[in-house]
Each structure stands twice: as structure tokens, then as C-alpha cells.
Amino acid sequence: MAELRVSKLHFKRGTFCLALDDITIVQGEKVAILGENGSGKSTLLQLLCGLLSGHGRISYDGRILKNIPVAERALLFALLTQTSEVIFPFSVEEVVRFGRFPHAQGNNFSDEDDELTEHHLNMLDLSALRDRHFSQLSGGEQRRVMLARVLNQKAPIIYLDEPNASLDIRHTLDIFELLTSREETVIAPVHDINLAERFFDRFLLLKRGTLLADVKRDQLTPELLTETYDVQVACGAAAFTFQHQ
């Protein structure tokens, strides 16, 4: 179980400034971060992961992030970055097994690590690709491999930077269904408002580095979104809707 608490967070880089007062996210919440480009979504994610350091206090289960050794952080949260690269030819299976690194004893993976790797390969439909090199895969396949790696880490909090980037609609549905049905806390900047609304239950609306609103699904109104994105948002039937067959 992990509870994330942020208070009086302040971060400044150049002319950009991010300031947040208080946010508490409890275990199992599915939180989408919405906001236009440059509103600070990725910066917030990096601050929460300790990849950037700002003023204020970020704590996991009462422990201040700065005081948690890097190796232990990996047991608290996992991160799917927006773009991913693997230099040199590593196989799909090897990359997914990387996710077990925080749990490895010394230089060796346990049988449990292997089982979990196998499990997550199957879960994301990657068994057939296991021996292919990561770099030979398509963008969408690479995304699924990285997601399998992140899930394989078995951290109670998962940060996903635009999880559906370069995924087709079927895999997007698969992955959002998978993610939001699990026990882990999921915190993700999402660009597609409709998908966010459908799968997440809490929304952080960012605008120019400040938190415009922190709302549940039923409070996510077109007016709020209009203010967030500076475009007229109306509620109505979309031209197409998607559902698994």
C-alpha cells in the first residue's frame, strides 16, 4: 500500500513555474492529468518520480522522497516514459525482465522473477515476439514491451506518461482496461479527454503550472475543460465510439 502526498510543491525552470498546494492520492486511485502542451504535466510526473527536485514536500507513506534511496524508490513506483530507447540489441524478453531489476538479488534473477516476466509477456501479447530485438519492433510493439516492463516492476504506484502514445485503438482499449482494473495506483497524463473520462476516476487539471481543479469523474464538466484547454468543449455523442467486439 502506498499513499502519495504532495504539499507546497514549487518548481521553477526559466520562465516556467509549477506550483501545487496539496494533493493526496490513496492506493488504487486512477488519476489522469489533463492540460494543454506545456502546462506542466510531464514536469509534475518527473517531480513525483524524483527525477527533478523542487521545493516543497513529496512523501510516500509518510517518507519524504528525497530521503528514500534510489534503489528503494523503485519498489514504490514505476515509470513509463513518453519515449523509450534501448541502445544495443536486447531481446523483448530481456527488456521485460529489466522490470524485475529492483527485486534481483545481487546479479541474479530468481525463479519468481522469471515467472512474473513470463506472466507479463503473455499479458501484453508479447510471447511471440520474445526473441526479437527491441529495436526491430514497431512503435506500438515497443510501447507494449515497455508497459510489460513497468508492470513487471510490481510497484504499487505506476506513472505513465501518455500511455497510449503510438498505440492503435484496439491496444489502447486493451491497455486502459488492463491498467484501470488493477490494484495499483495509476497516475497518467492523457491527451485524449474521451479516453480519460471513460477509464479514470480522478482528474488533475493543470494550466500554466497551476492546478486548476482536482475533481472526480462526475465533476468533470465541459466548462472546466473549456477553461483548461482554451477551446470550446461540449458534451455530446462523438462521431464514432469504440467498444471491444
Binding site: 518520480c49 534510489v70 534503489a71 528503494e72 524508490r73 514505476a78 515509470l79 516514459t81 523509450s84 531489476f101
Partner: peptide
């Protein structure tokens, strides 16, 4: 970032 969040300094 991936390496760092996997627990590597």
C-alpha cells in the same frame, strides 16, 4: 529516466 526509476543511480 527509466533506468533511474528502476533503482539505478
Amino acid at each position: 529516466h527509466s533506468a533511474q526509476t528502476l533503482g539505478v543511480n
